[in-house]
């Protein structure tokens, strides 16, 4: 029996902006496997109509999901899920370990933090998209408290 597509809810009385509620729930469904890669999301207009919010609200949520590499907008098929489940804990731990080594090395050699971040951004951007998407998706998931600039730049 086919699993029905998941729901999202928006609470207009919540202090969290509606676009963020939409973004976080869709991101959660993607990471949780409820929206597998290839799933087609509703059109912005249809989802906005269903939720009774402005089209721009949904557009912003979709835009952020696209920046995070979880979805992609295609001319023929609309917005499609591209992200997959989060990387394993081991994989993330490995990246953290390398990042710690990098930070220690940079401090030892006198390279300032901004320069290190710029180097990392450039490296992430240079990685082929299929690899970058998985990495960036997780970065967004764990980086909700990070400054927006880090998330935005890393998703380039």
């Amino acid at each position: 029996m086919e699993t029905p597509p998941p729901d999202i809810t928006v609470d207009l009385a919540s202090p969290t902006p509606p676009f963020e509620q939409i973004r976080s729930q869709i991101a959660g469904h993607v990471r949780g496997g409820l929206l597998p890669a290839g799933s087609r999301l509703p059109t912005m207009r249809a989802l906005a109509a269903d939720l009774g919010v402005a089209v721009g609200t949904v557009a912003r949520a979709y835009s952020e999901l696209e920046s995070a590499g979880l979805v992609a907008s295609r001319r023929r098929t609309g917005t499609v899920v591209t992200g997959s489940a989060a990387p394993s804990v081991d994989a993330e731990q490995g990246v953290r370990s390398i990042a710690a080594d990098l930070a220690a090395r940079a401090r030892q050699d006198g390279v300032d933090a901004e320069t290190v971040l710029a180097i990392v951004r450039a490296a992430v951007t240079a990685v082929p998209p299929t690899v970058a998407r998985t990495t960036v998706a997780r970065t967004t998931a764990v980086g909700r408290q990070r400054p927006p600039s880090v998330r935005t730049t890393a998703a380039m």
């Binding site: 597509p5 009385a13 059109t43």
Partner: peptide, 16 residues
């Protein structure tokens, strides 16, 4: 068509 009202809104993530 009547738009949803109330503070809590729900939508199904299904493309029509």
């Amino acid at each position: 068509w009547p738009r949803p009202d109330g503070a809590l809104r729900r939508a199904r993530l299904h493309r029509r």
